[in-house]
Design a binder for these strands. Structure first.
Length: 206
DNA sequence: ACAAGGATGGACT
DNA sequence: GTCCATCCTTGTA
């Protein structure tokens, strides 16, 4: 089969209706106590705030226990301890010695990497932290959004249903684009990247 | 003890 | 497109 004919999931789409009809419903720990493969797509459209600064999640990736690309693949270590703890916590790790990346811990040592937000709250604070004005570049990437929201290793292990975190379900139904994950070498073909296909705030187009 | 390399981003050609 | 800063984690000896 020619490379161009290979079945790629990038144009696939699915839907989630939002966890409830109630607008502004805060996500409790039970939301995260499921397979990351259920949770990750439902995170699209969720508003993520840290001390009131943040926005709407437009891109995430799923990593599970039997996933060669996951930090949890080789079992518990000091770094990934949070992934093996209870669901609903923030797993924050340092990437390339420079950046911080935020994950939402789900069931069974799985987690969803939050890769991009559409900034909606605290734009000025984000601009200050990022030393950059352009809204499009504030949170379009896992390292960028952590810098914009002030997330560091200090938040590793903290529960997501309490300050400084606040996660609020989307009031509306969302169409979710699906694609392959970015920046990994192992298990790179798994279609575990989810996002708002048309968003200008993605780290990369679907 | 040591070397390899990474779930990135910014600068540059 | 390419290069690489920077440092911590991990695998291996």
């Amino acid at each position: 089969m020619a490379e161009s004919e290979r079945a790629v999931p990038d144009r696939t789409a699915l839907h989630h209706s939002g966890p409830a009809a109630l607008p502004s419903r805060k996500l409790g720990l039970d939301f995260f106590a499921r397979s990351v493969h259920e949770v990750a797509p439902e995170l699209i459209g969720v508003t993520l705030l840290v001390d009131g600064v943040g926005g709407r999640i437009v891109e995430v990736e799923a990593y599970d226990r039997d996933d060669p690309a996951s930090h949890a693949f080789r079992g518990p270590t000091a770094r990934n301890a949070t992934m093996f703890g209870p669901p609903g916590r923030a797993y924050v790790y340092r990437s390339y010695g420079v950046h911080w990346c935020l994950n939402v811990v789900c069931d069974a040592a799985s987690a969803a990497l939050v890769r991009a937000l559409e900034p909606t709250h605290g734009l000025d604070e984000m601009r200050k932290r990022r030393r950059l004005d352009e809204p499009r570049l504030l949170c379009s990437g896992p390292g960028r959004l952590c810098q914009a929201l002030g997330i560091t290793g200090e938040q590793d292990g903290l529960p997501l249903d309490a300050p400084p975190f606040e996660l609020t379900a989307s009031p509306a139904a969302v169409e979710v684009a699906v694609g392959t994950r970015i920046g990994i070498t192992r298990a790179a073909e798994r279609p575990w990247r989810y996002g708002l296909g048309g968003s200008r705030f993605l780290s990369r187009r679907f």
